[in-house]
Design a binder for these strands. Structure first.
Length: 196
DNA sequence: CCTTCGATGGGCT
DNA sequence: GCCCATCGAAGGA
């Protein structure tokens, strides 16, 4: 298969819509040790200044959140404890919205993913945001990269049969935001990350 | 400075 | 379900 970056204007749709449409696309990393591809099966939208669960709530602008104020399609990586989490910057410039990529299904590069993840069962390689980054060999060095540029990019995928919508995971202490229906996943997929 | 706290994951009970 | 690794960001003094 020949994977090529999706067009730039794919990232110009409204954030909720983009979060939904990212489910079913491919995420490709042309890693020095081999090609790695997953189909995205779970995302979460973070709606910027209005969303108490977002790092950019209240337009908080710091070294970490700076990239969220940039153009849609940029890569926002950040550290959570010992893990790297991957986001797609969304919304117009200066509207700091983003989409967390939470889970994927291995398509190409199973051997390398297993090596990066250890010997656990395949269903545990990419069923969470930290695991996914590790399986794909993605680190903080991609902060500010663009998701249409090799070697790390989104490519058109097959989509999904049915989309499931629910509340986001792991955002206690964010008031009313805990129940916003901003989590999107492929219904019934065995590698969707845990429910809360 | 100093303290608190994670958009997590793995191990163990 | 509970514990905690491990560290930078955030926010207060």
């Amino acid at each position: 298969m020949n994977f090529q970056p999706i067009s730039t204007n794919f990232f110009q749709q409204p954030t909720i819509q983009l979060a939904q449409n990212l489910v079913g696309q491919y995420l490709v990393h042309q890693h020095p040790d081999g090609l790695l591809v997953v189909k995205i099966i779970e995302t979460e939208a973070y709606m910027g200044s209005e969303d108490r669960a977002a790092h950019s709530f209240g337009n908080r602008r710091t070294k970490r959140t700076e990239v969220m104020f940039g153009e849609p399609g940029l890569v926002y990586t950040y550290q959570m404890h010992t893990h790297t989490l991957m986001n797609v910057v969304s919304g117009p410039i200066c509207k700091p919205e983003a989409i967390l990529i939470r889970a994927g299904e291995p398509i190409v590069g199973h051997e390398l993913m297993q090596q990066f993840r250890g010997t656990t069962a395949m269903k545990n390689w990419t069923n969470g945001p930290g695991k996914l980054s590790k399986a794909l060999g993605v680190t903080m060095s991609f902060y500010g990269h663009h998701w249409t540029e090799k070697p790390l990019f989104i490519a058109p995928g097959p989509g999904v049969k049915e989309l499931e919508i629910g509340p986001r995971v792991g955002i206690q202490n964010t008031g009313e935001a805990v129940d916003y229906p901003y989590r999107f996943s492929e219904k019934g997929h065995p590698m969707v990350s845990k429910y809360r």
